[in-house]
Design a binder for these strands. Structure first.
Lengths: 337, 337
DNA sequence: TTGAAAGCGCTAACAC
DNA sequence: GTGTTAGCGCTTTCAA
């Protein structure tokens, strides 16, 4: 019996304490091989008593599988990454898989360092995520020796990619407003240079028809204020609903309307996009908004990367996941039917 | 020469290609042992050409050191964790250390699963972090086989702990307001049940003196509104400055003052706490506020956990890191001298 | 100056 | 039913 008190208990210690060989101990603990039930349970008891936990490194070295994946993101703010991460983690934790989080800003050198570090640590796969779906991360992830899943960031040709269904979310918002009896629905959104802006605006136009009016601007509260000024200072009929490209714009819109004495939701309904709770819930009245279900997106990304790591075939291409309307008080209308 | 095309290149391959033994190859690459410079550089060239990267698992198994640490947090929102994480990552990345992020909500079972998984993976240390400094995480981290550093969460007796210096931050805010010539400074803050609320309020009282007036409430914009209503609807002299317990309260205060026609910063100065940019920058005018320097706190936590892992002695106890005043426009006054 | 061999903790063939 | 042994990729004595 070797003298190593301060260190972890190894399978060797379990075997010795149970009076069997380490092979038998291993088989007993992994429910493989054959032996009497008595031996198996004795070994298990001893292991439990000693607090034995197998060394994942040794296992990984043997199996070429580390039960570890890497999550790469350039979303320092975490607004998109955190819910995504929560989903990934949730999908993987009961498989015993842990997640390396690497925030790479937009620095290619830093990105490379992190990717190399993950590869050195033999991650089973990588999930690449970002803050917009029409930009690639500043690092080339093709032809890596491990599978890659792209979540909420642009994927290369033939990449396995997951995004939320912007168009469907947009349609959902418009339909909700229509269902409330709104007739003059305007869309106030971010910069045209964002693919999701065009996607949402396109779906909005298709749903609203000839009357469609889109105001492009920035992703800020201030732009929401300004857009309201433009709309209300113009001659002619005013909108009775505003569908906003994100929650910050929506908050600006709501504040501006209130300051003008426009009654919400009586006279005008406002829908946001993102369901960023810090913004949506602090708005007066709280925002009805579209949730991109990023946590579910993360779960799916976790499942996919694991499937890939296990050698299962996964069709490349872009998978669009549904958005959900979250009803608060900025539109009127009760909970959804 | 074995046939393994699809797999990573091992030191064996490098040795073979360079015509040396793996022992020599290893020494060459690690700048240990002795050999001719020619041999060493030849091996290095071959390794570079082959794109050799050592298997971190094998190394870890050998050295009992995984170059991996775990970051545990119950701050799902990420408001505190993300900057912290960024700092940790920054401090560790050039040491080749990667970070497992584990979001545990407030679920003891989940926490245990994650901690066990990290331990199985032989992390070199753990950083425990949270969303308030007067609550412990729902898991016992004492007597683990690896070092633990507590950052922005309550540590057990004798833990190594890092928090921001709330009292100093509070003093800084008050001094700034005094320096601007403000005479009637009120403090509007969160619930008394938070240690940091008492800490900040105490320092505020000490700095302001007999006139000190503290309004306790919740951490919300709404409470900011309500506090202004109380203060301005009361008889007597009005405050000329409000120091708020966080940025959300400050935003509520600023909005309420504007709605009352009080001119900011001409008549009243407002200081927030947290420097949560999404809130501070969207406020009109943008908030002057106290930054807790969580990123630096993260860096320090990373350094400490590494020192501990390396066996260096680190004195237990609470380390308070300084806060910084960030000047925007809600107080008047130029950039700091 | 270089190389053979042992071993980190574990699992899986293969003997017995 | 149980044990012996080889080996995952690497570093490190120790011998040549």
């Amino acid at each position: 019996m070797s003298i190593r008190t301060s260190t972890r208990v190894r399978i060797y210690d379990v075997a010795a304490a149970a009076g069997v060989s380490i092979a038998t101990a291993s088989k007993a603990l992994n429910d493989t091989g054959r032996m009497t039930d008595e031996t198996r349970s004795r070994v298990k008891d001893v292991a439990a008593r000693l607090g034995f936990r197998p060394n994942a490194m040794a296992r990984a070295l043997l199996h070429q599988r580390s039960f570890t994946i890497g999550l790469l993101t350039n979303d320092t703010y975490g607004r998109f990454t955190l819910p995504l991460m929560a989903g990934v983690s949730e999908a993987l934790v009961d498989q015993g898989v842990s997640v390396f989080l690497c925030a790479i800003e937009d620095d290619p050198a830093l990105a490379k360092i992190h990717v190399d570090a993950m590869l050195d640590k033999q991650v089973d796969g990588i999930i690449a995520s970002g803050k917009r779906i029409d930009r690639q991360l500043p690092v080339d992830l093709e032809n890596l020796s491990v599978p890659v899943v792209y979540a909420f960031t642009q994927a290369p040709e033939n990449g396995v990619s997951l995004v939320s269904d912007d168009a469907a979310g947009s349609r959902e918002a418009v339909e909700w407003l229509k269902g409330l009896g709104r007739q003059r629905i305007v869309h106030v959104t971010g910069p045209r240079s964002f693919a999701s802006v065009e996607e949402r605006a396109g779906a909005y136009r298709a749903a609203v028809g000839a009357d469609a009016q889109v105001l492009f601007g920035t992703w800020s509260e201030q732009w929401g204020h300004e857009a309201v000024a433009r709309l209300w200072d113009a001659a002619g009929e005013k909108p009775d609903a505003i569908f906003c490209g994100n929650d910050q714009i929506a908050r600006g819109v709501v504040d501006a309307l209130r300051e003008r004495g426009v009654s919400l939701p009586a006279d005008v309904s406002v829908v946001g996009f993102d369901n960023w709770e810090i913004v949506a819930e602090a708005t007066r009245p709280p925002l009805t908004t579209i949730d991109m279900n990023l946590k579910e997106l993360g779960r799916e990304a976790g499942r996919l990367v694991l499937a890939l790591a296990a050698g299962e075939a996964v069709a490349p291409g872009i998978r669009k996941l549904p958005c959900t309307l979250v009803v608060r008080q900025s539109c009127g209308g009760g909970p959804r039917s």
